[in-house]
Amino acid sequence: MWLGLLMGSVIVLFFISLTVGRHSFSLWQTVQELLAQEQSVYTLILIELRLPRSLVAVIVGATLGLCGAAMQGLLRNPLASPGILGSSSGAALFSVIVLYFGFHAISPWLLPIAGMAGALLAIVLVYALTGNDSTITTIILAGVAINAIAAACISLAINLAPSPYAVREIALWTLGDLSKVSLTNLWLMLPTTLIGWLMLIGCGQALNALSLGEQTAASMGVNVARLRWRIFLATALAVGAAVATVGAIGFIGLVIPHLLRPLVGYEPRRLLFASALGGAVMLLLADISVRLIPSQIPLQVGVLTALVGAPFFLYLIVKLRKELP
């Protein structure tokens, strides 16, 4: 029931997102023009500007929600998410280096691959720092450390970049922005994202088993070490591609699994798909809102997700502190 509602919301919001922009025109008429294979300014705006933006919003939102759910299931920690554990900022750092220093001229595919490498490095570092049965505090501390290092390195890299415009774009990477995506970006991010998704979807049963602890999961035939690497790699693939395209949009991976967990009966396997849908809903909503809020200079979508997500994060910390001794 909830899944149907979420799926419906994704579809409705997707179409709303297509109609929102600086100029309003009839979506229906434009689609008819498209079907008649006529080209007009409106068909161009729809296909080349709004469609990629909405599609990327769905894909990135789904990636962040899905990866947040998978990480929380794996670490059995409700505070785990691509943003908190540093994979997003690791991906942002590597993408920044590849982009601003011209390495992507070698091959555009270097970009999602660099994002993946950065995300993987960050999560492995956090994992190495905190170990297996880590408390919430150590995980957050390790994440804070990795995030701080990555943020500093992003600043450094952008300040050293050859482009005079680069300096103004630090915030784009740390907050995320959907306004400049094109169909080319979409094609570039799609393959690694899909591989990541497929790798994660098969993890549901194992994540379910993990809710009984690693020993019990292992006794039920789950190879916990292999599962861990699979999830690290899969989230790195998907999050890396997403961040390399639109920057590090925060808090979706943290908030969405949390909100949806009670609705799916706390079952990690069902949470995966639900969180993917929920993430898409949240990012679509945020991206529609930034376009509706009147402002001189276009707002970045990450500003909104952070405005919603950061207080939620604080609330979670307070709540968890009460529950734990």
Binding site: R22, V41, S163, S179
Partner: peptide, 29 residues
């Protein structure tokens, strides 16, 4: 600032470009 949608709508015949170094990259460019 003019976004791409507006640029397509007002459709000037020509754009002025002041090129930067070829290895220069930014979202802006």
């Amino acid at each position: 600032i003019v976004d791409l949608e507006t640029l397509l709508m007002i459709a000037p015949l020509a754009l002025i470009d002041s090129p930067l170094a070829p290895d220069s990259y930014s979202f802006a460019e």
